[in-house]
Nucleic acid binder design. Structure first.
Length: 274
DNA sequence: CGGCGGTCCTGTCAGC
DNA sequence: TGCTGACAGGACCGCC
């Protein structure tokens, strides 16, 4: 569920709360997520100080004093929530609990178990299968229209599918792909390799803009996404097309259309994005 | 290699 | 009030 802005929001929340604290104990209630939680996870993570929190693509990275990094992906339905230990009530889908020495618990909750949690040495991160093929970070200054054109050059697939491909560009998922294409007035079905230079300029500019606006508002809360504090995000109130099938386009009043692409819903304005 | 569809899993909601 | 099917912020795998 969470895309870049939601993951960034989770990281920002954790950073302000748990840097410098120590994980007293890790408890794994279920190991069978998208990939199994390694059997030495508890031992490696226990009694370690948290030194930094970073994001790479849609992954949360929790750096530990011993050089290890806890890697978390929230999949479609995951969240990382901080509770006061005294107020914590176990939930069915709390798969991992990290007890912190400030009296709190960091819980990984993920009903669908499409997420993952693991631990690896900082120096081996880039060699991990899950990180080896990731594309560029959209908020990186180096990622520009030329980069976009380069990765789209041989992609005959629809532009909407292409910008959600984490090998080409990371962080953009179903919501922000649709919103970015709307703001750029690009039809989501346009073949990716037919993007002009000016379209690429516009699209990458709008992807960056929209991601930053969403981060500013704490991400988007549709169903169950919440920040680590338990607060909801606010960007969903700014959607122009996502989830607005049949409602009037905010620019031209034409009803927003919904189609399926790659098994996912795509929302767009048939007139603005002709 | 690119592209597409199916699959993983649980919860929720619309419609009968 | 059930039941059933469709759908949900993602990504991997196997097939053409």
């Amino acid at each position: 569920m969470p895309e870049l802005p939601e993951v960034e929001t989770v990281c920002n929340g954790l950073r302000s709360q748990i840097i410098g604290t120590i994980i007293e104990q890790a408890t794994v209630n279920r190991r069978d997520l998208r990939q199994p939680i390694p059997s030495d996870f508890e031992k490696r993570v226990g009694e370690q100080k948290i030194t930094a929190i970073r994001r790479r693509a849609k992954y949360v990275l929790i750096e530990l004093a011993n050089g290890d990094v806890v890697i978390v992906h929230l999949g479609m339905s995951g969240s990382l929530i901080l509770y006061d230990k005294s107020a914590y009530v176990p939930r069915k889908h709390d798969h991992v609990l990290l007890e912190i020495n400030d009296g709190r618990i960091l819980a990984l909750y993920d009903p669908r178990r499409f997420g993952l949690m693991t631990v690896a040495g900082a120096e081996e991160l880039d060699n991990l299968k899950i990180f080896a093929d990731l594309g560029g970070e959209p908020l990186d200054d180096k990622i520009d229209a030329d980069y976009l054109l380069k990765v789209l050059k041989n992609a005959k697939t629809a532009i909407k599918i292409a910008i959600m491909d984490q090998v080409k560009l990371v962080g953009v998922g179903n919501i922000y792909a649709a919103e970015s294409l709307f703001r750029s007035r690009i039809n989501p079905e346009k073949p990716a390799n037919t993007l002009t230079k000016s379209e690429a300029r516009l699209l990458i500019k709008n992807i960056k803009q929209i991601l930053l606006e969403a981060i500013e508002l704490g991400g988007s809360t549709l169903r169950d996404y919440v920040r680590s504090s338990g607060d909801k995000g606010d960007f969903q109130n700014n959607f122009n097309v996502y989830g607005r099938e049949g409602l009037p386009c905010k620019i031209c009043d034409t009803p927003i259309a919904s189609i399926r692409q790659g098994g996912r819903s795509t929302f767009f304005c048939p007139k603005c994005q002709a």
